[in-house]
């Protein structure tokens, strides 16, 4: 992977959280050594293939019944995003992707080595989260220097924030042109390993509060929960 920068933020390397990847593979407790060795190889392959790109932009908020972003035709609906942004007068829209090469790698690997493909898929999911974490971390530092504080990030599909927001959110960020991120007719982000998110900006420090099953719209059917676990977010 090459360093990726948008000139304000430079990501020098991605890190794949091993524990997170193992959770995606539904491996609990001590993983066998052979799996760990395979996983390490998959991590390397994934990191070599990934082309991480991201774009972010800051907007002022106009709060009424719905939350409007100044200068855009985007509105945020729902109780959960309102709660996240309750202390905020501005927000950041963020979109990040690992690029199409990762999708291709996984697709090709499925033909010859399904087990490796599964591991690559898990590593990629962990890597795109890591990309967002790192961007968010650097944003938080930059804003903190100005006495401003970020909320956790919140994505379409969490809580009651609809998935149908993907398309207008990507359009607002001009994400196709800038980072090659598109939304399919049925609302799926493509490249597959991509994330969009909203991060509130406040003058007061923000507590971590949006994690956990309570705000997840998959809570009712989540395979982790079914097995008495959680996905770790």
């Amino acid at each position: 992977m090459q360093n990726f920068t948008d000139d304000t933020i430079t990501i020098t390397e991605l890190h794949i959280n091993r524990a997170e990847a193992l959770r995606y593979l539904h491996i609990n407790g001590q993983a066998p050594a052979e799996i760990l060795a395979d996983l390490a190889a998959a991590e390397q392959q994934l990191l070599q293939t990934a082309q991480p790109r991201f774009v972010w932009q800051e907007f002022a908020l106009q709060k009424a019944e719905e939350i409007a972003l100044t200068g855009t035709n985007l509105t945020l609906k729902g109780a959960d995003i309102a709660e996240l942004l309750q202390d905020c007068d501005r927000c950041i829209l963020l979109a990040a992707t690992l690029g199409l090469a990762v999708d291709e790698l996984i697709r090709r690997t499925e033909l010859t080595d399904m087990s490796r493909a599964l591991m690559l898929d898990a590593c990629a999911s962990a890597a795109v989260e890591n990309l967002c974490d790192r961007v968010q971390q650097q944003l938080a530092e930059q804003f903190a220097a100005q006495g401003r504080y970020l909320t956790d990030r919140f994505s379409p599909g969490y809580g009651d924030l609809p998935l149908s927001l993907q398309k207008p959110l990507c359009a607002t960020l001009n994400a196709q042109r800038l980072i090659g991120l598109t939304v399919s007719g049925s609302g799926i982000l493509l490249p597959r390993k991509s994330v969009t998110a909203i991060i509130g900006i406040s003058s007061r420090p923000q507590a971590k509060r949006q994690s956990g099953c309570a705000t997840c719209n998959l809570a009712a059917t989540c395979p982790f929960r079914k097995a008495g676990q959680n996905c770790g977010k």
């Binding site: 593979l25 066998p32 395979d38 399904m114």
Partner: peptide, 8 residues
């Protein structure tokens, strides 16, 4: 055993 081993 886990899913990767089952697949292998």
């Amino acid at each position: 055993i886990f899913l990767p081993q089952l697949i292998n």
